[in-house]
Amino acid sequence: MADPGFPPDTLGLVPMPSRRAVLSRRVFSHVGLLIGAGLIAVIVIMAIFAPVLAPYDPYAQDLSNRRIPPVWHAWINDHHKASWAHPFGTDRIGRDYLSRIIYGARISLLIGTLAMLISGTLGTALGVAAGYFGGRIDMFVNFLVTTRLSLPLILVCLVIVTLFGGSITTIILALGFLIWDRFAIVMRSVTLQIRNLDYVTVARANGCSSAYIIFREILPNVANALIVVATIEMAVAILLEAVLSFLGLGVKPPLPSWGLMIAEAKTDMFFDAWLIGIPGIALFVLILAINLVGDGLRDVTAPERRA
């Protein structure tokens, strides 16, 4: 085409960077995602290595050392009891607060993750089925979603806990079977969009089974939306657990749930504010981190973004 004297120059034909390179560049230039992921990593490590990291047994009571304020009281108002022996102080029956916070991360993460997985599986299955098959199945799923949305969460939990008692298993199952609605709604609409795309039509024309189309053609393309909803729902589950525990409907003492710790401390709120402040901040940081990761993942995996 070009004569030999003319070198085949690149002429702005920039080589397309590989997918992985693009993704990693986007991840490492997204500050929010990095901060969120870092915070979550810290909390997860804390939860996994709790027995090693916690300085005391979280259940061990020490009635001679009750309500010791956290270490910073030693610096601020020169409190004689505050020391590095109990960096976050002790509660009103003398349990080490730092150890309880560390163990509490286990409960929050366990409940958040499992409730999210249960509700995610349920909601995705319902949503994808409704979007893909349509017709009566769609009507049935819509009916389920409406029914679920008309149930007041707290009241339903109250009933469940009165009937079955407030164990971690009960809470996980109750939350898992209650917060799937957002998954179902989002997955249904995304599936509806993809279902009408030509590549699904081609698969159908080739006689692919519904299972193949759902698992190989549709699900990989709803993953973005799924991840974002999953992070939101995980945060919701963790917060709901804290709320339920605070109301006495969640996990039972002496388990070190952050919500329960806040509840136990509410009588001392005006005298020893840190008893509420520390678990509150822990909860805040975890929820913030999860939401940062969710937003970040949405930005990073979006197909088109400003170059």
Partner: peptide
């Protein structure tokens, strides 16, 4: 029988 569709953006699974 096989089809070819109009929009080459929606006829190929991006994943």
């Amino acid at each position: 029988v096989q089809p070819i569709f109009q929009d080459p953006y929606s006829s190929l699974n991006p994943r």
